[in-house]
Amino acid sequence: MQARRIPKILSFESIMWLFMRISGLAMYVFALTGLTIALIMGARTQMDMGTLLRWTFFPIGTHVTSSDILVLEQWINPFWTIMQYLTIVFATMHGTNGLRMVLEDYMDAGWGVHVLRGLLLIIWLFMLLVAFNLIQTTGAV
């Protein structure tokens, strides 16, 4: 399965290897929590696939409008805000690091790798900025 060599000692690559697995498990926790609580709060009959995925991965006010939870205010609270921050940080970091692993599999070691890592870091920070902004503006409803 693994083409990359993962050194035993702590290195960037071994930390990221561990991170991919921990963030994978964390996303299970976030997704199942989001889905379960959405169902408890009454999102049952209007759940199309999009709504289901929004509730499981990024439940913010402007994002889950097509489920039949009538009082959306009830879940705009610190619990969900923290969930949203954790989900978005883990998911985007998992995804951009995954892209890094794939691309570096096809690259020669050298300065190109550093350029790539710099670019991906910028893309990741940009995604975080946009998402944080969304969370903040919806949280204020």
């Binding site: 998911a91 985007t92 995804g95 951009t96 995954g98 892209l99 794939v102 893309i123 995604m127 946009v130 998402a131």
Partner: peptide, 13 residues
């Protein structure tokens, strides 16, 4: 994995 990242990335953009 790449597909989901593309999907999420375009969505954020």
């Amino acid at each position: 994995g790449l597909g989901i990242l593309l999907f999420v990335g375009l969505h954020v953009l």
